Amino acid sequence: MDILFTPNALIALLTLTFLEIILGIDNIVFLSIVSGKLEEKDQPKARRIGLLLAMLFRIILLFGITWVLNLQDTLYSIDWGFFSAHITGQSLIIFAGGLFLLYKSVSEIHHKMEGEEESEKGKSTNSLVAAIMQIALLNIVFSFDSILTAVGLVSMKEPAQGGFGYEGALIIMILAVIISIIIMMIFAGPVSKFVNNHPTIQILGLSFLILIGVMLIAEGSHLAHFRFGDDIEVSSIPKGYLYFSIFFSLFVEFLNIKMKKNSSKPVKLKNNKIVDKELTDSDVLN
């Protein structure tokens, strides 16, 4: 335990906590979109359960870090001449998560833009259980990405070799996960309210999820060593480029919202449970 109070350990904890929060942004966006379709009284519960599941999955994976690392072993190899790959368990999970995120994001954009009402198909509002299942499914993928980043950052070498040792590194990673989830819980409510009250932010957030889905598919393909011919191998997309584009787009949209705040009321998307109280019935129908 003494090693946890060294300057290197504290720096590693702060750095890893910051990275966990950054990597959790896509999780909060997804939580906001999914919980926004629930009744207003169920939305805080969905966010809390979603973030607690994220923390639980990450801690479980940290205790099973040996199993997680073994998922990098090749399960099946393909060699068709023009295409070759070495499929691993990790690549399958990341690739499937990217496909799910693409499907969910595109379908949500379709429902919001086309205005396809649930009642037209005889369906009721999304249940809390269905929302939590979607959140849990995607949390598994996000947890793998988060844990692999943590393992790459915190050295498990013995202190004599410049590391923190297995137990020291494990404690640092668990503390970083717990602290980051607590911080995200504090800000998840205001972020979700802001996202659900501004339709342009919702569409922007869904576009970010599409971008993250493409990144996961590229990363899964890279982990599976997808190769076309002798020279072309699929590479992963650097996360720095992705998050820079997200923050830059949000900054521009915040400026846009501030400029238009006093000039006009925002357009309300279909299937959104939060309705501006100042709108009249005729405004809602229109």
Rank of each mutant, 00 (worst) to 15 (best):
E120N: 13
S143E: 09
L148K: 08
I140S: 01
L99K: 02
S84A: 14
L153I: 15
L148T: 05
G152L: 07
S124H: 11
I87Q: 05
F100Y: 04
A130I: 14
L148Q: 01
A85N: 06
F100M: 13
V129Y: 03
L137V: 11
G122W: 06
E116H: 13
G98Q: 01
D79Q: 04
A130D: 07
L128E: 00
S105I: 05
E118M: 13
T149M: 13
G81T: 10
A96K: 01
K121Q: 08
F95C: 10
F83L: 03
H110V: 15
L99F: 05
S127E: 04
I93R: 10
V129A: 07
E114P: 00
Q90L: 15
L137Y: 00
Q90F: 08
M113R: 12
S127K: 11
I109E: 05
E118H: 12
S143R: 09
D145H: 06
F95V: 15
A131N: 05
K112T: 03
V141I: 13
E120R: 12
T125G: 14
F95P: 11
I87H: 09
M113F: 10
I78T: 00
L128D: 01
L102N: 02
H111G: 00
L148G: 00
G97A: 02
K112Q: 10
L99W: 02
I147L: 15
S124W: 04
F83T: 00
N139D: 15
H111V: 09
N126Q: 12
A150T: 10
A130C: 03
Y103T: 11
E116D: 12
L153V: 14
L138Y: 05
S124K: 14
